[in-house]
């Protein structure tokens, strides 16, 4: 199902949580809402779910205006950050809840519900745990129950709020793949909220990046990483060295650091260079860096250093290219690519 969000505003008291947000979500895609805390991403998710209602704007499911339809009538699956399982019900009862509360005419028969519960517990790989209580499960298992429960009502869209936020790192990684697998198996349109860019880039078909209640950019993981639309996106997605300086005649200069800035108008500007976009340069090219620290992370070597005017800089190389580099030595670096944004 497609979802259209049109110029949605939402304030909490005087605090604007969403500021004229528009977003189109495609049928069957897995979309990440990525942003720092306070960026409005959870509020946007809750507006889509009908747990929060916008002050202005519209929410459409296909062509249906659901802006002020309450959550119970929307048929969305929502997975809460703390899972929000019903503690007094068994796992099976939790999963069956959405079917059990239907009006008699629409409610499947008991055997049908039981079969659906079994099928879903199988899908999330919790077969046989239906009679346990949530308190008897691990965090990762609770997460899967929450997912199965949300899927039980055959939701038109699946919404997940920081789905992996409460889990430790290893469980998080395997559940990420799991969510991708389940999404591909069910084909349901899925939106999840995260503040973890790695999670968003790895998992999502497209990423919407929010900042201060506005959408900064929507695009595939590659697009937002390689062609950031704003300084914020550039700084938030992936690692980047940041320089303040001026553009004159398609050249950006910040002290000794000089970068190509094709098509950027003259004046004050901010430039971003990713660590892997820096390379060792011939004498006479690039700029000089003094090495403060040298670390090795698997096949990659990372240099932390300073330019002649004291700006901090980080660069990463294949380890084999680092022969002869030592702490306190100086070397020349040049950027093969940079993102330069004129200051507003």
């Amino acid at each position: 199902m497609t979802i259209s969000i049109r110029s949605v505003d939402k304030r909490f008291g005087r605090y604007p949580a969403l500021n004229s947000v528009s977003l189109d979500i495609r049928d069957g895609e897995l979309l990440a809402l990525l942003g720092p805390s306070g960026s409005g991403k959870t509020t946007l998710l809750r507006v889509i779910a009908g747990l929060e209602f916008p002050d202005r704007g519209q929410v459409l499911f296909e062509d249906e205006d659901v802006t002020y339809l309450n959550a119970a009538a929307r048929r969305v699956g929502f997975v809460f950050q703390q899972y929000a399982l019903f503690k007094h019900m068994t796992v099976a009862k939790n999963v069956a809840f959405g079917l059990d509360v239907r009006k008699r005419r629409e409610r499947p028969s008991r055997p049908e519900i039981a079969a659906r519960v079994d099928e879903l517990l199988g899908l999330v790989e919790l077969g046989g745990l239906g009679r346990r209580f949530p308190s008897q499960l691990s965090g990762g298992q609770r997460q899967r129950v929450a997912l199965a429960r949300a899927l039980a009502v055959s939701p038109r869209v699946l919404l997940l709020d920081e789905p992996f936020g409460a889990l430790d790192a290893t469980v998080r990684k395997s559940l990420r793949r799991e969510l991708r697998r389940i999404h591909d198996a069910t084909g349901v349109t899925t939106i999840f909220v995260t503040h973890d860019q790695e999670e968003a880039l790895e998992l999502a078909d497209r990423v919407a990046i929010l900042n201060a209640g506005r959408i900064e950019q929507v695009g595939t993981p590659d697009e937002v990483h390689d062609r950031p639309a704003s300084p914020f996106v550039c700084g938030f997605v992936g690692e980047a060295n940041r320089f303040e300086g001026r553009v004159e005649g398609a050249r950006f200069a910040s002290g000794p650091v000089v970068l190509a800035a094709e098509g950027v108008r003259d004046g004050a500007a901010t430039a971003f260079v990713r660590p892997h976009q820096l390379a060792l340069a011939e004498p006479g090219r690039g700029f000089e860096v003094t090495v403060d620290r040298l670390t090795v992370q698997g096949p990659v070597g990372v240099i932390e250093g300073r330019t002649a005017d004291g700006q901090r800089i980080e660069a990463s190389f294949a380890r084999k290219d680092l022969g002869g580099v030592e702490v306190r030595s100086t070397l020349r670096l040049a950027a093969d690519h940079a993102h330069v944004f004129p200051d507003a």
């Binding site: 009908g50 062509d63 205006d65």
Partner: peptide, 12 residues
């Protein structure tokens, strides 16, 4: 199809 729009929707 468009559902009737009511502004005074109640939170869950």
């Amino acid at each position: 199809m468009t559902a009737p729009v009511t502004r005074n929707a109640r939170r869950a």
